[in-house]
Nucleic acid binder design. Structure first.
Lengths: 191, 191
DNA sequence: AACCTTTTTTGCCAAATGGCAATGAAATTA
DNA sequence: TAATTTCATTGCCATTTGGCAAAAAAGGTT
């Protein structure tokens, strides 16, 4: 499918032959809005490309509050299996925030493609690097920016997010309450 | 050396034979207090075990402020090369906060040991998992705990840290100012 | 359109955290 | 020991963020 190719190329361009090899193993899935399609502590053995829709990863903190860790926009790669799993079981929940379309590939299969194909290996490493850099950037934002600045950054990354997903998810991602998010929104529209 | 073995076993116990194989490639280094021994954007090709002393990783944010990302206590494994590098160059600074002793191994050499030895591979994967889980936990702390709670958690992880390292480093790790840290310290000693 | 449900915004006030400069304490050096 | 330097604490006040309940707005259903 053309759109998987675009998603991959946006990260790291691979040859037509390498892409064809990958495509052999791809399967397609759909999930409805709200569905948590990767569950904490449950067995999971896939890699995912998000073709359509929006996804978030989340956890429940010690007080039972739902904390959004990351958002994934349409046409993006979901965090690699190795990053989100321990012993084959997921460390996070991944939830469809709209109806979504996914392309998937068995994680073990993908790993063997990586071993035999430089392109695919380089692509996978690039995904890993981006993921980790993003995590560090988020950490820096949380420690050294105000909530308003963090919201401004989030808007640069995902301009339409506030129109697409419930605000409490965005607020918990930013580390503030729903109420404070609403006030920041008001402030930011004034100028 | 006995203490490398302890550091490894605290993460994932490996056989004597596997350990002996690893030990062949180990070298030893020392750094003085203050020295940044891995520098942002500089070539680095080693894995590190911290035998003695305390280390922190840090970055300079967009306003020029120094932000501490992680602390590493004595007898710990420093973040794996794959996590802290892009294209062989470091994404972070790593600084000795006291005089330190390190055991090192070439990262490429380590990777080939991983491929040929299940024990070492499992150990390395365990390090990776712990690192990532720790990052997510820190993120949750920053988004859903107060600064006081974060300080309490940090003290559980590193009971002596406030006596060992300058407070501005700890404050930037917690995402607060030096002044606020001092006030929280006062509050917490009252009870 | 009218009704019901869910989501977002607002008002009021409290709590947490920041900023800056001065003070005090501790460590280092002469 | 005295002098110097570095680091941590405090006072005063401003700003940011939170909590809760009510009101308003938006979305969905009949």
């Amino acid at each position: 499918m053309e759109s998987i190719r675009e998603i991959i190329h946006a990260v790291y361009p691979i040859s037509a032959a390498s892409f064809a090899k990958l495509l052999t193993w791809i399967q397609y899935e759909e999930c409805c809005k709200e569905e948590t399609f990767i569950r904490l502590n449950k067995w999971n053995h896939k890699e995912y490309f998000l073709l359509k829709g929006v996804v978030r990863s989340y956890l429940t903190d010690s007080e039972g509050k739902d904390v959004t860790i990351s958002f994934f926009p349409a046409r993006s790669v979901i965090s690699p299996h190795v990053i989100r799993s321990t012993g084959g079981k997921s460390n996070l929940n991944y939830q469809a925030l709209t109806n979504i379309q996914l392309a998937t590939i068995d994680a073990t299969q993908f790993r063997s493609l990586m071993l035999e194909n430089t392109d695919i290996r380089d692509f996978a490493n690039k995904v890993l690097e981006k993921e980790l850099i993003e995590k560090v950037q988020k950490e820096i934002g949380l420690t050294s920016l105000t909530a308003k600045e963090r919201l401004i950054h989030l808007r640069q990354q995902f301009p339409l997010l506030e129109n697409l997903v419930p605000h409490p998810y965005i607020a918990s991602y930013l580390g503030i309450t729903n109420t404070s998010l609403s006030r920041l929104r008001k402030e930011l529209t004034k100028q």
